[in-house]
Simulated scan of single mutants.
Amino acid sequence: MLRLFARPLLAVGLFLTSLAAWAHGISEADKQRMLDGGYLQYVSLGASHMLTGYDHLLFLFGVVFFLTRFVDVAKFVTAFTLGHCITLILATFLKITWNFWLVDALIAISVIYKGFDNNGGFQKHFGRASPNLLAVVFGFGLLHGFGLSTRLQQLPLGDDQVGMLMRILSFNVGVELGQIAALVVMVGLLSVWRRRESFARFSVLANNALMAVGSLLLLMQLHGYHHDIDAENLRFPVKAHRHAHEDLEVENSTKTGRDSL
């Protein structure tokens, strides 16, 4: 069984690593494009960030996994939305930030938590009921909003307070639109899957996979943080590489074919 899922999980890990590298870097050209494009550009960015925000989507997937009634979906999604709106708007406007690798590491833990909770982890391993899910979802919503804020603060928001607030709100509107689009797909697919026998057989496995991917995300973010704070020691050893070339007399080679190396 482990061998069956090893390759897919490795592929997911590599894919998420490439996405993280893109998400944590915003070019100067993109920053200027944001200012030139106006508020609609921030709406578009917010929507695309949510739709490509694998950590946010995985957590939402875990939240709605066992919810069968529309009223329950609306209740928990509203709690999550309120949470991330509060920190996204306030933290960005007040310029409250933290290392984005660590924030994303905590968000990865929220994904692991939801998979663990969905599989009855508190009952099985701690002999107690799960913490209040509505409060947990709201709390994690605050965390996810802070993560979104660390991204938004990498963009030019301007010095004008009104303009800054409008850009933040525009980004937030985009996030909500992206979230609605993602939820429609997730809830629709889950509602269809629940009618099949495979849902009961594979629901535990699906949430184990959620924990596994969350763990990959956690390791990836901690690895990024390690590079961020200790870049000098982790940098490519240029001098050692140069000495190796000199020892091999590569510079004196007159043949250019790979077979001659």
Rank of each mutant, 00 (worst) to 15 (best):
Q161F: 11
Q161E: 15
V162P: 12
V162I: 14
V162M: 13
G163T: 11
G163P: 11
G163Y: 08
G163K: 07
L165I: 04
M166L: 15
M166W: 14
R167G: 02
I168H: 07
I168V: 15
L169A: 12
L169S: 11
S170I: 08
F171I: 07
F171A: 10
F171W: 12
N172E: 10
V173E: 03
G174I: 03
G174L: 02
V175E: 07
V175W: 11
V175R: 05
E176C: 03
E176F: 00
E176Q: 07
L177S: 04
L177W: 05
G178N: 10
G178Q: 04
G178W: 03
Q179E: 07
Q179D: 04
Q179S: 06
I180V: 15
A181K: 08
A182W: 00
A182C: 14
L183V: 03
V184H: 04
V184A: 14
V185Y: 06
M186F: 14
M186P: 03
V187Y: 10
V187F: 11
V187R: 02
V187C: 09
G188M: 02
G188Y: 08
G188A: 07
L189H: 01
L189R: 04
L189K: 02
L190E: 05
V192Y: 14
V192P: 05
V192D: 09
W193V: 09
W193D: 06
R195K: 15
R196W: 13
E197L: 08
E197P: 11
E197W: 04
E197Y: 06
S198L: 01
S198Y: 00
S198K: 03
S198G: 03
F199S: 00
F199P: 01
A200K: 10
A200V: 15
A200P: 06
A200F: 13
A200L: 15
A200M: 15
F202C: 08
S203M: 05
S203V: 10
V204P: 05
L205D: 04
L205Q: 10
L205K: 08
A206S: 15
A206F: 09
A206G: 06
A206L: 13
N207Y: 09
N207P: 10
N208F: 09
N208A: 12
N208K: 10
N208E: 11
A209Y: 00
L210R: 07
L210M: 15
M211L: 12
M211W: 03
M211S: 13
A212P: 02
A212W: 07
V213D: 01
V213W: 08
V213N: 01
V213K: 07
G214D: 01
G214V: 00
S215E: 02
L216P: 00
